[in-house]
């Protein structure tokens, strides 16, 4: 079980983040890396919801949208410092998840998927149609975090790409640390137990509804923070961040990498963020190749990339 070991996983992640820039051919890749980390953060949240607690959501982009628009709207309308906007977004997402999660999580399987899907669509419609506030489908500017300027004053000159690569990387490691803590904690065990058998979990005293709700709220906060980081690093945001496709993309990243594994989630996010960049040479066949890759992975490595590879490696050792 060494690959599940918390510190080993965190070390691998941190070292990868620190070492990869040595191989970057150009500054552009810092941007790509930052985008991977932001996606990975949201997917780590889904690992808690899907991988630990066994619940599905097709609406998590809705929470990413809330986090993103909190950064776009709060500094202008509430006078909140841009650095505090992600916190506001996370609080709003968490409270909203708490409110809608209670009735929604009574549903199972595809009923739950459809209900969460509805939530995501709702958020994305509000963001698209409240033109006066959100600028509608054209999107809106996001105020700068200001942290880079502070670092510059301290004599640390970073490009936008470098700064966001580092900042998103740090937040991702932090998010992974929290998710791994949860895995091997009483709450995480309760979540994994209800995933295995709701009836048995209930008979050992697990309040199944409460633990599902916790997983939902925690994963919503992850998605929200990821949305905030995306908005801040792009300096611009459109309702697409809350769109259905983004929700599906997140779930696909989680499933591709291995839905029970934090490192796997990061790998899944990296692959699905990079593939479109690589596949631009195929132009209109990009989606086709993407779809084919996913089908093949699901057929041959149904556990997801990382757990399947880990299992195979272990099998060879024995």
């Amino acid at each position: 079980m060494t690959w599940r070991n918390k510190w080993l996983q965190l070390a691998i992640l941190a070292i990868a983040i620190a070492v990869l820039p040595l191989f970057f051919p150009s500054g552009y890749y810092y941007r790509v890396g930052a985008l991977i980390f932001v996606n990975a953060l949201a997917v780590v949240g889904l690992v808690i919801l899907i991988g630990y607690a066994g619940q599905i959501s097709l609406g998590h982009a809705g929470f990413a949208g809330i986090g993103a628009y909190a950064c776009a709207l709060a500094p202008e309308h509430l006078g909140l410092h841009p650095a505090l906007s992600p916190v506001l977004g996370a609080v709003v997402s968490g409270v909203l998840a708490l409110l809608i999660g209670r009735p929604i999580l009574r549903l199972k399987g595809y009923y739950l998927a459809v209900a969460t899907l509805g939530f995501g669509i709702l958020v994305s419609m509000v963001l698209t149609n409240e033109r006066a506030l959100t600028g509608g489908p054209d999107g809106m500017q996001v105020a700068d975090l200001g942290l880079r300027a502070v670092l510059r004053d301290l004599g640390w000159r970073l490009s936008g790409g470098e700064f966001w690569y580092g900042a998103s990387g740090i937040v991702l490691v932090l998010g992974a640390w929290i998710a791994l803590n949860l895995f091997d904690s009483p709450t995480g065990r309760a979540m994994r137990a209800l995933h295995g058998s709701e009836v048995a979990a209930a008979t050992v005293g697990v309040d199944v509804a409460r633990q599902k709700l916790r997983a939902f709220v925690i994963s919503a906060v992850y998605a929200s923070v990821a949305g905030s980081l995306l908005a801040l690093q792009n300096g611009y945001i459109t309702p697409d961040v809350a769109g259905f496709l983004h929700s599906v993309e997140m779930v696909t990243m989680a499933v591709l990498g291995g839905v029970g594994s934090v490192l796997g989630a990061t790998l899944g996010a990296a692959i699905l963020t990079l593939l479109p960049q690589v596949l631009t040479v195929f132009a209109e066949y990009e989606q086709l190749v993407l779809g084919a890759v996913m089908i093949l992975v699901m057929i041959f490595l149904p556990q997801g990339l990382l757990p399947s590879i880990a299992r195979r490696l272990r099998g060879r050792d024995e």
Binding site: M1, R189, A193, H195, G196, S197, V199, A200, A201, G260
Partner: peptide, 11 residues
């Protein structure tokens, strides 16, 4: 339980 209710994916 008669028909085992084990958390299969846990140790």
């Amino acid at each position: 339980f008669q028909n085992l209710q084990i958390f299969q994916d846990m140790t």
